[in-house]
C-alpha cells in the first residue's frame, strides 16, 4: 500500500470513527445482540474485571480464603476428572488410585474449611453491605449446592462407608419429601448428579460470584463503611 493510499484510508477511518462511536454509545441498541453488547460494555469493563491493585485493607489473611476456596475447587475438579476416567476398581485397589482418591477427598476437606472460614469472615463483616446482596446470595447458593455435592460424593465412593451414608441419608431425604426425585441409594443417579450436574451448577454460580466481586469490589471492614457510604452519596448512588 502506498503512503498516499494509507493516508487516505486513515482519513476515512478518522471521519468514520465518530459515527461509529456515536452509534455504540448514544443510540439505544435495538437488537438482542446489541442490547447484550451494550449491557456487557456497561457492566463488565475490563479494568474492573482484571484489576492490578487492591485496597490496602485486603492485605489481611481473612481476605485470602476466597481464592483459597477457588484453588481447592480446582484441585477437586482436576482429581475428580482422573477418578472419573479410571473408576472405582482402580482407585480402591491401586496405590496411585488411592493417592488420587485421597487427593480428591482432602481437596474437598480443604474446600469446605476454606469456604467456611470465608463464609464466617464475610458474615462477620456483613459482606452484603454496599449493594453486595447478589454477591452474598450467590456465595450462599454455592455453599448449599456444595453440601449436596459433598453428600453425593460420599455416597458414590462404592464402599461400605457410602452404603451406610446413603441409607442414612435416604431416610432424611424421604422425611424432607424429596426422596421421590433424589434417591441417594440409586448409585447411577447419585453418580451423574455428582460428576456432572452439581459441578456444572457450582462452576456457573462461582463464576457469577467472582464477577460480582469484581464489579462491586471486596467488602470493606465494618469500621470503614462510612467511607464507602460517603463516596456513594457523593456520587449520587
Amino acid at each position: 500500500m502506498s503512503a498516499h493510499a494509507g493516508a487516505a484510508n486513515e482519513g476515512a477511518r478518522s471521519a468514520a470513527a465518530p459515527l461509529v462511536a456515536a452509534d455504540r454509545t448514544d443510540a439505544a441498541p435495538t437488537s438482542l445482540i446489541g442490547r447484550l453488547r451494550h449491557r456487557l460494555e456497561h457492566d463488565l469493563p475490563y479494568d474492573q474485571l482484571l484489576p492490578e491493585t487492591q485496597p490496602s485493607y485486603v492485605a489481611s489473611w481473612i481476605y485470602v480464603f476466597g481464592v483459597l476456596t477457588l484453588a481447592a475447587l480446582a484441585m477437586i475438579i482436576a482429581s475428580g476428572v482422573v477418578l472419573a476416567f479410571e473408576g472405582p476398581s482402580w482407585y480402591h485397589t491401586s496405590g496411585v488410585g488411592h493417592w488420587f482418591n485421597s487427593l480428591h477427598f482432602w481437596s474437598v476437606q480443604l474446600f469446605f474449611m476454606f469456604m467456611l472460614v470465608h463464609l464466617v469472615g464475610k458474615f462477620s463483616m456483613a459482606a452484603w453491605r454496599g449493594h453486595r446482596a447478589r454477591t452474598w446470595i450467590t456465595g450462599m447458593i454455592a455453599f448449599l449446592v456444595s453440601i449436596i455435592a459433598g453428600l453425593t460424593g460420599y455416597v458414590v465412593q462404592t464402599n461400605f462407608d457410602s452404603q451406610w451414608i446413603s441409607f442414612e441419608a435416604k431416610d432424611g431425604l424421604n422425611a424432607a419429601g424429596v426422596g421421590a426425585w433424589f434417591n441417594v441409594a440409586n448409585l447411577g443417579q447419585a453418580l451423574l448428579v455428582h460428576v456432572f450436574l452439581l459441578p456444572a451448577i457450582i462452576l456457573v454460580i462461582v463464576a457469577i460470584h467472582v464477577v460480582l466481586v469484581r464489579l462491586r469490589g471486596v467488602v470493606p471492614p465494618i469500621d470503614a463503611a462510612r467511607v464507602e457510604q460517603a463516596r456513594d452519596a457523593e456520587e449520587g448512588r
Binding site: P45, D47, S56, G217
Partner: peptide
Amino acid sequence: RTSDEPTGDR
C-alpha cells in the same frame, strides 16, 4: 484505609 477501593459501577 478504604479511600481507594477499586470499585466501579455501584
